[in-house]
Each structure stands twice: as structure tokens, then as C-alpha cells.
Amino acid sequence: MEYVNAFLVGGSICVIGQIIINKTKLTPANVLVLFVTLGAVLTAIGIYEPLVEFGGAGATVPIPGFGYSLVKGTFKAVKSDGILGAFTGGLTATAGGVTAAVFFGYLMAILFNPKTKP
């Protein structure tokens, strides 16, 4: 059941993205920015958390999940450290992901070369 929920929630988030791409002139970069910001705002107003509880990876793997982690970490840090937490909490919670993106990104770029599209 967990897997079905992840599939449904993840798939639906992607469909929303696809409709935005096809219906507007937004570029992929714009859509990613929009979604991460939406994820952060929806978490702040308490809408994203239930989605994560229901969908699991279906809600955390898509890019709004990154916004979710940022805001959740920020809330936790603000509770324990006060205003400083607003500046440390987000990246502390997502440190693994960001570092992985930098490191694996660099590694793959060194190992492989781009190929012309057929």
C-alpha cells in the first residue's frame, strides 16, 4: 500500500508540473524554482506534512520535498536556537542532499562526456 501511495502522490505532483510546462511558456528551470518554493510555502502553512505522511517518498522525492525539508529543518532550529535557526536550520536539514548533488555532480562530470543526440 505504501508503494501505491508513493506512486500516486509522486505521479500526481509530476502531472501538475507537466500541465504547467505545456500550458505556459515556463522553462524547466522556472518550474523547478516554482515547485521548490511552493513546497516550502505549503509546508509552512501545514499542507505538505499530511501529504508526506500519506505519500512517503512520493512527496519527499519530488523537488517540493526539498522545500519541505528546508522549512521543517528551519522550524526545528528556530525552536531550539531562536532567530539564528532561520539561517542554519534549512541547510542543516538538507546538508546531505546538497552535498551529494555537488559531489556526485562533479564526479559524474569528470567521469563522463556528453553525447550528441541521435
Binding site: 508513493a6 500516486l8 509522486g10 505521479g11 509530476c14 502531472v15 517518498a57 512520493g58
Partner: peptide, 13 residues
């Protein structure tokens, strides 16, 4: 988008 997105998230799960 639904199927591929869904499959990637299921792999995540």
C-alpha cells in the same frame, strides 16, 4: 509524466 514520476518515487520508497 504520471507513470515515470510515479515509478521514480516508488523506487525512492
Amino acid at each position: 509524466a504520471f507513470f515515470v514520476g510515479g515509478i521514480i518515487c516508488t523506487i525512492g520508497q
